[in-house]
Amino acid sequence: MRDALFMGRLTAGATHEMQNILATIRESGGLMEDLLAVGGEGFAHAERFKKGLCVLAEQVERGMALSEQLNYCAHAPEATPAGAEVNEAMRSLVGLYRRDAARKRVNLVLAAGRTGLRTSLRALELMGRAGLALDCALALLPQGSQLMLSVEEQGGLAVLRLDSPGYEALRGQEPFAELERRARALGAGVSAGPGGQGVVLSLPKPQA
């Protein structure tokens, strides 16, 4: 965990720096717009230029969002006394996996559940487990299918439910056994979802 924390520290530093740079790009963009407004006469391609500035602004925002996600990852190895917030970790994880999913033409959706559900696992451990489940799913699901990750509460515990048509086939697969083994090592349980559909990962409750 020291390595992960250390790496996290490095990553956090890097994302911070990156956000600063993106912010300066944003400022430059704004300044250019102003410059065009006051001194743009005689600039034939002003419109084209302006369009470029719009794209610039969009992409800066996109970069910001990504670096925020990265920042969440960077802090994920840290233990929080109250426990990791499950929804938050899942939002970040799904953000990270969306492109992976898109590449496999799987539509990954997060059905965020009740907020405030926590677990004693570190965010990193939580993301690792859920990520493994997503890996299993993405490896198995046919192109064009839908994969839903939902955060639910069951008997006072936070559970993650992964569901998709045809997903029950997953439980017989090799990666699933690995998922089960790892989840157990961390004190999380894996079981079939309601009606035998999908997979449910039950997370250990936070320490009181």
Binding site: A4, M7, T11, L66, Q69, L70, C73, A74, A76, P77, L96, R99, D100, L124, M127, G128, G131, L132, D135
Partner: peptide
């Protein structure tokens, strides 16, 4: 896996 994720985000 987390390194892979970080690499993915980067």
């Amino acid at each position: 896996s987390i390194g892979r994720l970080a690499a993915g985000v980067a």
